[in-house]
Amino acid sequence: MALDKPYKDVPGTTIFDADQARKGYWLNQFCMSLMKAENRERFKADQRAYLDEWPMTEEQKQAVMAVDLNRCIQLGGNIYFLSKLGATHGKSFQQMAGSMTGMTEQEYRDLMIQGGRSVEGNRRIGEDGDAQAQHQPQGAAGKKARG
């Protein structure tokens, strides 16, 4: 019997469960390797060559090279592992988190200073909050895209 996953209906959110962890095992283990300064240097010098040492999928490698954290998470990555990739590129957690919303760094920083994202409309898929699929990307990019 399949186990209940009540967290599947939270918008804009991927819960890192055992299924995701299995899918992302090598992606996340690659990220762990970036805890060593010499590996960070080697990765930065030739990302493709470094990634080819790992049995990751091509999709995962492309997402890593694009630093597309949303895509990395869909493919089994977890933010605490991916943060090593961000750190290697000199990014803070705030820059990493903001990058997943489509907002500019300043827009996301302002959102946090103003008290953060509201939970209203963002509890369940199908509501109308700013984290819902129909409102992506957020910020100026979204306004431009949607006219």
């Binding site: 918008p11 959110t13 509201s118």
Partner: peptide
């Protein structure tokens, strides 16, 4: 306390909760 570091819902804060 409240926080979300991933996806389009990143930045969630819930003071009341």
């Amino acid at each position: 306390m409240s926080h979300q570091l991933q996806g389009p819902r990143a930045g969630l804060i819930n003071k009341k909760w």
